[in-house]
Amino acid sequence: MSRILEKRELVPRIFEYRVAAPRIARKAQPGHFVIVMADERGERIPLTIADFDRSAGTITLVMMVVGTSTMKLSRLGAGDCFYALIGPLGRPSEVQRFDTVLMVAGGVGAAPVFPIARAFRDLGSRVVTIQGARTSQLLFWTDRLASVSDLHLVTTDDGSAGRPGLVTQPLADLLQQDGGRHIGCVYAIGPAMMMKACCEVTRPLGVKTVVSLNTVMVDGTGMCGGCRVNLQGQTRFTCSDGPEFDGHLIDWDEVLGRQKTYVHEERCSLERYIAQYGPCQTESPA
């Protein structure tokens, strides 16, 4: 199985795949991820399950091209199969009914946020979503996120759409306005720096903040420890204990440090790939 049924480029370098994967679709929950390999020589990389259709037996993955592995994956299209697709992995999101939930989605984090926001909405929570991107050209799934939110705010670093600036500003404003009355939980998913910054905003207010870590992984089933994180002195594995954790307990400097372990190798690999196969094949968004 693991045949790609549909593939499209949402915004430059961010691709959406709908994949035939009946066993995974049957079991998928918000928060789950899969491990994919593009080919026999590929890396095993995690991608969050952004949506799933149990009756159709399909899952939706959203992927941003950053290096060799994602480059290779971006060249697979409808009709192609992933060399390997394993899932669903990780612990599902702990969704419960809150008065209001604040979902903060940074960049490609909009994809994992979507099914979680929907689940909170389905349970009767009021969902407020802040979606941020560097520039308007990189915003995707805005309609989708809006469809599962009672209030959907957009920010862009350069001010080309929505409110200019980072997601942390509207986050701080909304929390201040709320005064702790209704917002029971904040979810922040996106680049590690962004998640860390959101946690710093919520920490003095004592608001529960859940993040979804995107550490380097190999197996994804808890057998190697490569994805380990430090939660207030306790070691946890992102793949089997996470990927969601209480953001206030995470040693963010350690997370950011470990993410850089292969920076040199990643660069060498990508240069070699581009020299052989050319740059990322990106078309203008439809």
Binding site: G42, E43, G226, Y262, E265
Partner: peptide
């Protein structure tokens, strides 16, 4: 962990990086 080191090298053939992608 030895599991990670050996899985990278043996299963993912990281000893042949960059011909195999896993570092």
């Amino acid at each position: 962990s030895a599991n990670e080191y050996l899985t990278r090298s043996n299963l993912m053939r990281a000893y042949a990086f960059p011909e195999y992608d896993t570092p």
